[in-house]
Design a protein around this nucleic acid. Structure first.
Length: 648
DNA sequence: TTAGGGTTAG
């Protein structure tokens, strides 16, 4: 159906317009965003027997690219082949670009290969296509061919290379492209410099990103330069720095846009940035940005990740238009909660609307399965991934690995691990964590050794995984060796979790004094996690002296926590020192600290059963305890459990 | 040229 306004426009046309008049009319329709109108004009032009010229095809190819319409693109291609411009470099380049924009880089490559002659622009569109759809190696290969062919790169070439390197998060390539830019004198182009800021940021090299940013003269900096730098800090969750840049941006009279808001908000996905995030939300409402899909998706993720699933759901329910990102963000929120029912229901609802899940959606659903330990559902998602062509996707495989190991099936985790052709650092770390989680400490360390032999660089989480394996297995010397390796060989500064791990490792072995000295000489202030690890060990080894010292340190940090009081009371009780027990119970009372009793929940056939310690209030309480006693006995004797308490 | 959902820990 042709809108009346278009027909009116056409009627206002002079009776016999020339081809250049048609061209400019079509071009202006495209620039106004009226792509359909442009195509209609093209059809009218053909009907009025005006032959398209050399300029018409690139203009109309651009319209088809904007619509990502493959059938239309093929028909334009056929028109070109029948025309006198079938060998023209300008027209052919437009066809390559059109196919790239339609997501058919393979067809674009075929057209490119058959071009009788090429110029820098044709190389650029092909490299840009590769940058979007292929790996960094293939992009650089194409660039080398271009250089061998005697073509000199321009700013477009550099931008394409830069985008390819940041997409693949390849720091060496970003550096290489930066060098080429400096050598060829293209480093003065602000658009190119912006892609370097983004490239360095995505490779976590904020120092270099800052260096490029500061190198752009203040008057030349664009909103994109600021946004790229803010996004860099946001990517690492550095919200204080991101907001600092935002303030500088405003004082430099650069107006923030929607991208600025989205980046700032994404830097706030951490509990300590909740207020900053709320501020951005209200600012977005005031500026009318809150109807934007991207911003709403970020808001959903922000609330869901910070545990406010109701707000996330409210925003999701109120959306006029949802994308797969909206669904994935909310599923991710239920994964965080471990709510498998809601998470999976949402996944099915998404499918029912016809929205296709992608790799990231499956990762979120698998995370739900891992959190909840639902192995059968996890296997079902595995089959779903395979039958939808995502079974080889590395992030899906990593999530499968994590799901299987959390569900206790290391054999299936191993199968997935072996099937991954391009293992990333996440793959290896997940495998190490999986073995450690399932008590296979030796295997966890073997996987680590294999990884190091292969020349892969472990990160701080890999070391956390091996240190935890050592702590749980009691491999103290090995643990120390790895800790030194991390700091001295890999130059990774330990974070609080690493220190807590070492304290735990020494404490479990009963080396409490050593653990205490270690904590007291740490270069950073120990937090509750570090002291808590030592207190746990004091409890295990009944050391009231060190325990009491640790308790006071913990109470300085968390005065309202009941844990230290209870731990100390228990240590004294086990030694029969009732004065000590009374002292800590009295302290608890005077500080009005209350300990909520620990309880467990079991869901059977949709009904949730709650149990606390020595709790007989359940209708089948007596029977359940009898079964538990029987189970304990059978486990002690190494027998298979025989009884079923019949909750279902 | 910039922005949204995701996997390793907790």
């Amino acid at each position: 159906m042709i809108p009346t306004s278009y027909t009116k426009t056409l009627n206002r046309f002079s009776k016999f317009p020339s081809v250049s008049e048609w061209n400019s009319k079509i071009r202006s329709s495209i620039s106004q965003g009226c792509t359909q109108k442009a195509l209609l004009l093209f059809r009218q032009m053909k009907q009025s027997s005006i032959e398209p010229d050399k300029l018409t095809f690139p203009i109309i190819a651009k319209a088809s690219a904007k619509l990502s319409n493959l059938r239309l693109s093929e028909s334009i291609h056929t028109h070109v082949l029948k025309s006198q411009f079938m060998s023209d470099v300008y027209v052919q380049t437009a066809l390559v670009d059109m196919y790239v924009k339609c997501g058919r880089v393979d067809v674009a490559r075929q057209v490119f290969e058959r071009m009788p002659e090429r110029d820098v622009a044709s190389w650029n569109v092909m490299i840009m296509g590769f940058a979007e759809f292929c790996g960094a190696g293939e992009v650089m290969g194409l660039f080398r061919q271009m250089r061998v062919g005697g073509f000199r790169p321009d700013s477009m070439t550099l931008m394409a290379l830069s985008i390819a390197s940041s997409n693949s998060q390849n720091l060496n390539m970003v550096r290489g492209v930066h060098c080429i830019g400096v050598q060829t004198g293209i480093d003065g182009d602000v658009c190119v410099a912006n892609t370097w800021i983004s490239g360095y940021s995505k490779c976590m090299d904020l120092e270099s990103a800052q260096m490029v940013f500061r190198g752009i003269p203040v008057v030349v900096r664009t909103v994109v330069s600021w946004n790229s730098m803010i996004a860099g800090y946001a990517f690492q969750g550095k919200f204080v720095e991101a907001f600092g840049l935002y303030r500088n941006m405003c004082s430099d009279c650069c107006n923030p846009d929607l991208s600025t808001m989205v980046s700032l908000l994404s830097s706030c996905v951490r509990p300590e940035a909740l207020l900053h995030g709320n501020l951005i939300h209200s600012h977005a409402i005031q500026s009318g940005f809150d109807s934007d899909v991207t911003l709403t998706n970020t808001l959903i993720s922000f609330y869901a990740k910070l545990g406010d699933i109701d707000s996330a759901r409210f925003l999701f329910n109120g959306m006029n238009e949802r994308t797969r990102v909206s669904w994935t963000a909310l599923i991710g929120g239920y994964a965080e909660k471990g709510d498998v029912d809601e998470g999976f229901a949402l996944f099915l609802a998404m499918e029912a609307t016809g929205e296709k899940p992608d790799a990231v959606t499956l990762v979120a659903v698998l995370s739900v399965c891992g959190q909840a330990g639902t192995l059968e559902l996890g296997r079902w998602i595995h089959e779903y991934a395979t039958s939808n062509g995502l079974g080889k996707n590395v992030i899906v495989c990593n999530a499968l690995l994590d799901m299987y190991s959390k569900c206790g099936s290391m054999s299936e985790a191993c199968e997935v691990f072996l099937s991954i052709s391009e293992r990333t650092i996440v793959t290896w770390t997940t495998m190490i964590t999986g073995y450690a989680l399932n008590g296979e400490f030796k295997l966890a360390l073997d996987v680590f050794s294999q990884m190091v032999v292969l020349g892969l660089r472990p990160n701080h989480l890999t070391f956390l995984a091996v240190l935890q394996a050592c702590a749980h297995a009691g491999f103290v010397e090995k643990g120390w060796m790895l800790f030194r390796m991390m700091t001295e060989v890999y130059k990774i500064s330990p974070i609080l979790e690493h220190y807590a791990c070492i304290a735990d490792m020494l404490g479990r072995k009963g080396r409490l004094k050593e653990a205490l000295e270690f904590i007291q000489t740490m270069p950073v202030k120990p937090d509750a996690g570090v002291w808590g690890a030592l207190l746990g060990a004091c409890k295990t080894h009944n050391d009231a002296e060190i325990g009491e010292y640790v308790t006071y340190r913990l109470l300085e940090l968390e005065p309202q926590s009941a844990v230290p009081y209870v731990a100390m009371a228990n240590i004294y009780a086990s030694e029969g020192k009732w004065d000590g027990v009374a002292k800590f119970r009295a302290m608890m009372r005077s500080k009005k600290v209350r300990k909520s009793p620990g309880h467990s929940l079991v869901q059977v056939n949709g009904k949730i059963h709650t149990f606390t310690v020595e709790d007989m209030s359940h209708p089948k309480g007596l029977f359940i305890f009898a079964v538990l006693d029987s189970l304990a006995l059978q486990l002690k004797e190494g027998l298979e459990p025989l009884l079923d308490c019949g909750l279902g």
